[in-house]
């Protein structure tokens, strides 16, 4: 290379939002480098590692919290379903960090794979769950053409992910004999969990990670960095 060269500046998208005082404020969203499907090595590896990390989190979650919850809610899945969001986190976090088509799905599948091979109680069925959950988030991100990654998108992704999981899988396998009313309540609990834990929680998590500088290779980190040069 003999010419001075800048690395490709990540594409940016500015769109107006209004702040609490009513005056228009432009926020900058950094997008993944184009072409969208040209995944960089670090994208692939980070997505896979995030999936494995969430596999560890699920493990820790099972050890720490689930026993407490299960005994409290044994045999009453609608309340236990309020924890569904934890299993939807990888998809939301993966999608918000890497910002490419397939990121949410890949992260979720790797996390599910880790669960399965560790011997969780559902066996290979978790892969199917993972597929549905990842697709939910992918669909929402695709609806916004991979240009919007704010809180609303994250919450919507969490909700749709929960809907896919419940409507296409859990309604027919785990709660098939419920009355229609209870099935609806079950779905409602799942959607709330998806919105709060996966959507809001995932978005906050990604923001906090970006502030620590861990996401410097990704658009989320770049959004934070240029405004606070060291």
């Amino acid at each position: 290379m003999t010419q001075p060269r800048k690395t490709q500046l990540p594409p940016q998208d500015t769109h107006p939002t209004s702040s609490s005082t009513g005056s228009p404020v432009t926020t900058v969203t950094v997008l993944a480098t184009r072409p969208l499907m040209r995944w960089r090595g670090v994208d692939l590896i980070t997505t896979a590692m995030l999936g494995v990390a969430f596999g560890v989190v699920f493990w820790g979650f099972d050890v720490f919290i689930y026993p407490v919850l299960s005994t409290a809610t044994a045999g009453f899945p609608p309340v236990a379903e309020l924890m569904l969001g934890v299993w939807l986190l990888p998809a939301v976090v993966g999608g918000l960090v890497v910002r490419r088509p397939g990121a949410a799905l890949f992260t979720e599948l790797v996390a599910a794979n880790v669960s399965m091979v560790l011997g969780n109680e559902w066996g290979a069925a978790v892969l199917l769950s993972g597929l549905l959950q990842g697709l939910g988030v992918e669909l929402v991100l695709a609806l916004f053409r991979h240009r919007r990654f704010g809180l609303a998108v994250a919450v919507l992704g969490g909700v749709l992910s929960a809907v896919f999981e419940i409507v296409f899988y859990e309604w027919h396998s785990f709660v098939a004999e419920y009355s229609v009313a209870w099935k609806a309540i079950f779905l409602g609990c799942g959607m709330v969990s998806g919105a709060v834990i996966a959507g809001l929680g995932g978005w906050l998590l990604v923001r906090a990670l970006a502030r620590t500088g861990s996401l410097n290779a990704f658009p989320a980190g770049q959004e934070v960095r240029e405004s606070n040069p060291v």
């Binding site: 590896i45 980070t46 590692m49 995030l50 919850l69 976090v93 996401l215 290779a217």
Partner: peptide
């Protein structure tokens, strides 16, 4: 559960930071 929840969040956050760091070097 609240204490455990708070621990879980803090531990998850710390774990993800380390994961991202390792992923960077692996890459």
């Amino acid at each position: 559960p609240l204490d455990r929840g708070r621990s879980a969040v803090a531990l998850t956050f710390g774990l993800l930071i380390e994961t991202l760091r390792q992923a960077g070097w692996m890459a």
